Amino acid sequence: MNRRELGQKWEELAEQYLERKGYQILNRNYQIRGGEIDIIAQEGEFLVFIEVRYRSDISYGTPSETVSKKKKAALKKAIKVYIHQNYLYHLQPRVDLIGIERTAKGFLLNHYQNVIDF
């Protein structure tokens, strides 16, 4: 599997997790020039933008530690464009991170809410 296919696999796993938690998936892999949002979902009054990160080895950092300032800035830009294009001003935006780590018994999925301030 190439890197893109692996990314899609982990995004699908994250999407299934979110659906089980009651999130309504609105979009996947939303792209603008200079930015991409892995998953966009609605949870009640929240419009949730989810970044999915996978690490097979955490010696260089956990998934939650790998979101750079540059990536955060790109996410904010893409979020503003998405909200404007879809007229979703009535929903409260929130950025979540789903970190997936390989373990000896399979994998561990962690869901972190509200990881970037607006």
Rank of each mutant, 00 (worst) to 15 (best):
M1T: 02
M1Q: 07
M1I: 03
R4W: 07
R4P: 00
E5Y: 07
L6N: 08
L6Q: 11
G7R: 09
K9Q: 11
W10N: 02
E12Q: 09
E12F: 07
E12Y: 07
E12C: 04
A14C: 03
A14W: 02
E15R: 14
Y17K: 12
Y17M: 10
E19I: 15
R20T: 11
R20F: 09
K21Q: 15
K21G: 00
G22H: 05
Q24L: 13
I25S: 12
I25M: 06
N27R: 12
N27G: 10
N27C: 09
N27P: 06
N27Q: 14
Y30T: 02
I32T: 05
I32D: 02
R33I: 10
G35Q: 08
G35N: 12
G35V: 11
I37P: 08
I37D: 12
I37M: 13
I39F: 06
I40K: 09
E43C: 09
G44N: 07
G44R: 10
V48E: 01
E51W: 07
V52F: 02
R55H: 01
I58K: 04
S59W: 05
S59K: 13
S59R: 14
Y60F: 15
P63M: 10
P63A: 07
P63E: 10
E65A: 13
S68L: 01
S68H: 07
K69H: 08
K70T: 13
K70C: 06
K71Q: 15
K71V: 10
K76T: 11
K77C: 06
K77P: 03
A78L: 08
I79K: 04
K80N: 12
V81D: 06
Y82Q: 04
I83D: 00
H84P: 01
Q85M: 08
Q85L: 10
L88R: 05
L88P: 03
L88M: 13
L88G: 03
H90I: 06
H90M: 13
H90A: 14
L91D: 06
D96M: 00
D96Y: 00
D96R: 01
G99L: 08
E101G: 05
R102A: 10
R102T: 08
R102I: 08
T103L: 00
T103R: 02
A104S: 14
K105P: 04
G106F: 04
G106W: 04
F107Y: 14
H111V: 07
Y112L: 11
Y112D: 11
N114H: 09
V115A: 03
I116Q: 04
D117I: 07
D117N: 09
F118G: 08
